[in-house]
Every structure is written in C-alpha cells, then in structure tokens.
Design a protein around this nucleic acid. Structure first.
Length: 266
DNA sequence: GGGTGATGCTGAG
DNA sequence: TCAGCCTCACCCC
C-alpha cells in the first residue's frame, strides 16, 4: 500500500500516540516473538521515517526496523481494540492505544552496524526537511536507465513508489522512457521539487491527490472521488485531463507505468 | 468460496 | 529477468 508519504505520516501519528510511553509489545502471530519479548515493557523513545523504512527507538538502545512492502499495514485503535487476527505480526499497547502490524516485508530488531549499512543504500528523502538534493541530481546524470526506472530506485530517491513516479513525471512533462542522464538540470530540479511538494501534500492528506483543481473543475481537491485524483496512474485509454490524448500504459523497472504522449513528449 | 491483483523488494541465475 | 514472499480487498461464480 504505502509510498513514503504514508510512512512519514505513520511515524508522526504513532509517535504522537506512543512515544514516551512504556509499551506492551507482543507478536500474536509469533513471527516476531523474540523481538517482542526483547522490547516488551520498554519505553518507546521516538519513531523515525526514512524513505519507506521506519525505525523505532526504544529505551536500552534497541532499534526496531519495519518495512511494509507491498502488503504491510498498520491499524491503530484508540479505544475498544478488536482482538488481533492470525496475521498480526506485532502489537504495541500503550495505556490508551493499540497499534497492530500485519503483512510487513520486514519487522526486525536491528543493530547499529546493520542500520548504517541499510541507510547507505537509501537515497535522499524529499520528506526529510533539509535534505540536499545533490545526490539525486548526480544519480540521474550518472545512470543510463530510463528516468521512470530511476525514480523507483530507492538509492536514487527514497520514498517514491509506482503512483508518485507516474504522476510526478506527468507534472514535470517528462516521458518516463527518457534516459536518466538526458534529463536536463531544469527537469531534474522540477522532479525533486515536485517530489517534495507532492509527497508533503500526500502526507498531510493521508492519500495521493496530484490533480490541480483547474484540471478537474473542482474547488476542493479533498472532495474528489478516488478516480479523479490522479492524472495518469491506471488510466490507460482514458483521455488526458489536460489535452484529451488517450493515456498510454507501458512497463518500466518491472512495473506498469502510464503517461500522456502529448503532455510528456519523448 | 476461489482467484487475483496491489502504492515493494530481494536474491538466484 | 524472474520467482518468491508477505496479506487482504475486491471481483466473480
């Protein structure tokens, strides 16, 4: 489900709810049993998001690393929590809230060395304030792969997923198949700025809405039905919201991608 | 009730 | 490049 905007939103909201509290930690499903036993009863100090990764800092200098992958999901209950299901990998209980985690690709304790190695593989995150975009520009200039594939590479830029890559390339007017190193400086800067603004907006809203109000005749974007929130993602054959050209689907980086041949000339 | 696809990533070949 | 993995909502019968 989640791209970087949701991960940062989770870090913020769970932090508000749980940080500073002593947390009862269990693994109803059992696949995080050892980690849960280690953390049970400790104080959760902070939660940090980087790209699509979450790091939970606990008293006693333990860190827990979570990556939701394609299927992972958190559920938060502030009162009357239902019992965990068979798929609940992790449960965190404070006095007045419960957070359940199911289906993550990764839920593990991580030591400082492993975390350092992991961080070295994660590129600049547009949602972390003050991040220097220079490594992003360098990566684009160096890589020979299509820019649409580069944007999914978490070492090039962290937190972009399949929805945002298609939408940001549309907003920048760049054909996804353009070789990364042929994107000029203005194009690269536009991509970074769009990543910052769109992911920030997504984090605030809790969902991905990229359309500009003038392109859908709406006054408030938040009221838009799901199918009208995006320009190109999963809209193959439908008319472009700006020029009516049918949206085209292709494949890049092993994932489907969509673009407008007119607004994103090759 | 079964089948399928999904906003992700890794490691083998 | 591709299989494999993780879970669940949604579709169709």
């Amino acid at each position: 489900m989640p791209e970087g905007h949701i991960i940062h939103r989770l870090a913020r909201r769970q932090g508000d709810l749980l940080a500073g509290e002593h947390i009862a930690v269990t693994s109803p499903q059992g696949r995080f049993a050892v980690g849960a036993a280690t953390l049970d009863g400790r104080r959760l100090e902070a939660i940090e998001a980087l790209g699509k990764h979450l790091f939970y800092r606990w008293s006693g200098d333990e860190s827990m690393h979570v990556h939701l992958g394609l299927f992972g999901r958190f559920r938060t209950h502030r009162s009357d929590p239902p019992p965990p299901t068979d798929g609940t990998r992790l449960a965190m209980h404070s006095d007045d809230a419960v957070v359940y985690l199911s289906g993550p690709t990764i839920c593990e304790l991580i030591d400082p060395d492993a975390e350092e190695q992991l961080r070295a593989r994660i590129g600049p995150d547009p949602l972390v304030p003050g991040t220097d975009p220079a490594p992003f520009y360098e990566s684009l200039g160096r890589r020979r792969i299509p820019v649409g594939a580069a944007l999914l590479d978490q070492k090039v830029i962290a937190g972009i997923g399949n929805v945002y890559r298609a939408e940001i390339l549309f907003l920048a007017g760049i054909d996804p198949r353009t070789p990364s190193h042929e994107v000029d400086a203005d194009g690269a800067e536009a991509l970074w700025q769009l990543a910052v603004s769109e992911l920030r907006a997504g984090e605030r809203a809790g969902r991905i809405i990229t359309v500009r109000p003038e392109d859908v005749g709406a006054r408030r974007r938040s009221d838009l039905p799901r199918r009208q929130r995006l320009y190109v993602y999963k809209r193959a054959g439908e008319p472009c919201r700006r020029c009516q050209t049918p949206i085209v689907m292709g494949e890049l980086g092993g994932r489907s991608i969509w673009h407008c041949p007119t607004c994103q000339p090759g």
